[in-house]
Amino acid sequence: MSRCKLVVMICLPLFVVACLGCGTRRNNPNATGGSGSQQNTIRVEGSDTMVNLAQAWAEEYNKTHPEISIQVSGGGSGVGIASLIDGVADMANASRKMKAKELARAEENTGSRPQEIVVGLDALAVYVHKNNPLESISLPELAEIYGDGGKLESWSALGVDNVDCDSGEITRVSRQNNSGTYHYFREAVLGKQRDFKLGSIDQSGSKDVVALVSRTPCAIGYSGMGYKTDEIKWLKVSQEKGQPGVEPGVATAADGSYAISRPLQIYTLGEPTGALKDYIDWIMSDAGQQIVLDLGYVPVKMPGADAETKDADSAAKE
């Protein structure tokens, strides 16, 4: 008798645990969409820069709209656009504009013209310590600071007397190489054929870069515009040395005059309708745009009420 009980006492908890383990498994997407109703599934494909953003949107949206299944995959802007043209994706994320040829092919293939919706901007600001007298920097100078084999190593070579920095050397603050910001900065500043110079202090997050630079008089760093605080100063950026620098901001990023920014857009086939329209409307709402800001991009519409956001906004308007 007692042996039986003992066995039950041991087995029952194991069984319960096993059941819990099975129960917590995610629902199989095929199981939920068994009827194959196209309306409830949104297929999103495209830019790797935006894949985190797209996933964050999908997760957040699913919390309030569990009936909609959003399938996100990356692969690159080109892949997303190709899928849109082939009709395999409902929505393409792209960190570049669609080319005229692609637009024409999409229209030919599907009969409807792709619609472009700019959902955010990927803009990087170049930060220095707030006591650093430098005001403006050019892209070639940045490339000489950050690029492999670059010669610019001291603040005096940039023509400023950075009094607080005893050694006079430029301390480069960068990002770890798994970051999209790292790759975008490399592409935009160093070009497609140049590596970063080794020996930079690689931080794991955009906020860490800002925190470190704000405490380090010798430092220079780059990070999303949204991370600006009062403790740090950003530089105006010019295309070429001698040209007037452009202040980073939502307006200058949006019109393309600020050099280190690019719009992030979504393409749909024709005007979005039904569930897709609801989803895109939500992306453009405060909730969706807050996620854009949270992930370090510039929202097209600043979501209200957040102190940090207001700072970035007012700074951008100055």
Partner: peptide, 15 residues
């Protein structure tokens, strides 16, 4: 510790 090291040694970075 980082700021203390900067203050004490004059190093450009504390980490």
């Amino acid at each position: 510790l980082g700021p203390i090291i900067i203050w004490a040694t004059g190093a450009p970075v504390g980490i």
